[in-house]
Amino acid sequence: MHPHDVVVRLAHAPSLWLTLLLVGVVLLMPHTAPLFHAWFPDLPRPVYTRASFVALTLAHLELVALSSGGAALFGIGLGIFVTREAGRDLAPLVGALAAIGQTFPPVAVLALSVPLLGYGAAPTILALWLYAVLPILEGTITGLRAVPAAVTDAATGMGFSAQGRLLGIELPLASPFVVSGLRTAVIINIGTAAIGSTIGALSLGSPILEGLATSNSAYVVQGALVVALLAVVVDRWFDHLASMTSFRSSGRGRSITS
């Protein structure tokens, strides 16, 4: 591909512009005092300074990354296990659990973790992990089950080992479903992590909650703006990931090779 084409492509990708916007907003937040002062003249301290927005964003991302990463490992692993011969007995139970568990509101899961685990970042991560496992697990099971029997049959007939078939055939074909589950999990976790501030985890929810508690609307706006942008940016990147994985399994891949 010509370098020029790359530039043209990126110019049309909203994910790139939104990411730059997010980075800009986070970095420039400390310098926005005059703006917020003009907007909310009654407030003595118009910009949240207890922690820098860079630190808040990184802490927020850490909560989401640790919980979602752990959930992906566990959820994909369990999803693979229950679709193998050895774990088949567990499949109905796990499937029902994933479906019913997702009707539990994320906030309720967070709240229920407090009596069992206490306050702070660790229980937040654990609650987020627990909730994120469900859509990833469901996506993995759906994806692996959607692989046509003819394809796995052909692979076995050609002499693929069980492991080679899983890694080379089944998982790539299931990946759009897995990515879709992961996307749901991550987006929900970005939102729930913000509420994690109520149980003492540092996140982009901290300025919002402090703003609500002290009637400082500027703090609310700052926190809300950054966390909303973060969620939209991450969702956009998942869009790219989704189109990258889906062309392998659908007919669209052919136009690239021809």
């Binding site: 509420i195 929810g205 919002i208 706006v221 926190g223 969620a231």
Partner: peptide, 19 residues
């Protein structure tokens, strides 16, 4: 896009214009 915005953020962003 609205669907991806965290609930607490959407509540917060609506507060200011509504007030």
């Amino acid at each position: 896009i609205v669907q991806t915005i965290p609930s607490i953020a959407l509540f917060g962003l609506l507060m200011v214009p509504l007030s």
